[in-house]
């Protein structure tokens, strides 16, 4: 009934799916982890990007090419959203509190309504050479699309990590997370820095969205499931750590995959949320923060 091969296969799949979870959480890790913006709409942006990929895919574009094309519009979209948020809330001094959360909740809601008006409630998929085929390793069949996702996820994590630690702009983003006033003293504008960072977070969400539609069919209300997964990964990682995000994604992926194998698919959605509650109750600062 319970074999070693089954366990091994579950772990391998968990690691692959975990990479995907990490990739879609990177944007939130910047927006919420570093910038402290209550970005409930991140998962909705992922689904929006997935639909944009679908739209470009219907003209025959490969999802990965589409991902590269939507990165720039999403960057500016993110800049705009942050600017709006800043002018409406952060600028007025007092912390936005309930209203800030309600604002992003409203945006997520609008995205969902817009998508269901525009595309209907049917599930949408894309086609590409690597979707639907598998790599056969002995007895195990690994879908090519998960391997593609793995590569993109690692490239994205490493890229963002290098960007945040090596470039001036990247260091400024990490600095604004710690002390906006000190950043101002050394001559960088904290608002523009945050705006730029939120743009990058949204651009990362664009790539995440393309991966989302590569991995599974999407529907407008899918963000509900991914709010839990992305926040779980970000909180587990410790806010704002890129390599921590990758590890946390892998942990979630493996646990979810094991639960799926042992108890069946109907329990899977609760895993991320259960883990999230557990982390919040026991170690709210996350695994990778001092």
């Amino acid at each position: 009934m319970f074999s070693f091969e089954l366990l091994f296969e579950a772990v391998v799949f968990g690691l692959l799916v975990g990479c995907f979870y990490a990739a879609i959480s990177l944007g939130l890790s910047i927006a919420f982890g570093l910038l402290d913006v209550p970005h409930i709409a991140h998962a909705a942006f992922l689904v929006l990007a997935a639909y944009m990929t679908f739209l470009l895919g219907s003209y025959g574009l490969d999802p990965l090419v589409a991902a590269v094309l939507i990165v720039i519009p999403f960057f500016f979209f993110g800049v705009l959203v942050y600017r709006f948020y800043y002018e409406a809330f952060e600028k007025r001094g007092a912390d936005a509190g309930v209203r800030g959360i309600a604002f992003f909740f409203g945006i997520a809601f609008l995205v969902q309504v817009f998508l269901s008006m525009k595309f209907g409630l049917d599930q949408r998929t894309v086609s590409a050479p690597y979707i639907g085929r598998s790599l056969e390793l002995g007895d195990m069949r690994i879908p090519w699309r998960l391997i593609v996702v793995l590569c993109v996820a690692i490239a994205l994590t490493v890229g963002l990590k290098l960007y945040l630690s090596k470039t001036f702009q990247g260091r400024a983003i990490r600095a604004v997370a710690q002390d906006a006033w000190a950043l101002r003293i050394v001559g960088a504008n904290p608002v523009l820095t945050k705006q730029w960072a939120f743009g990058i977070a949204t651009a990362a969400a664009a790539i995440g969205g393309a991966l989302l539609i590569i991995v599974s069919p999407v529907e407008p209300s899918l963000d509900r499931v991914y709010i839990g997964r992305t926040f779980c990964v970000v909180v587990l990682a410790g806010l704002g750590s890129m390599s921590g995000t990758l590890v946390a994604g892998l942990i979630l992926g493996v646990i979810e995959s094991l639960v799926l194998t042992m108890f069946g698919a109907s329990w899977a959605p609760a895993v991320a949320y259960g883990l999230l509650l557990l982390v919040l109750a026991i170690r709210p600062q996350g695994l990778f923060r001092q």
Partner: peptide
């Protein structure tokens, strides 16, 4: 479980409670 958490964490935790209870009922 969650009131030690501030602001957004509390909100996310309430979504978590919702999904977990729904999953139990589904099963």
């Amino acid at each position: 479980l969650t009131l030690r958490l501030k602001g957004i964490f509390f909100s996310i935790a309430t979504i978590a409670v919702a999904i977990i209870i729904e999953t139990f009922v589904l099963n």
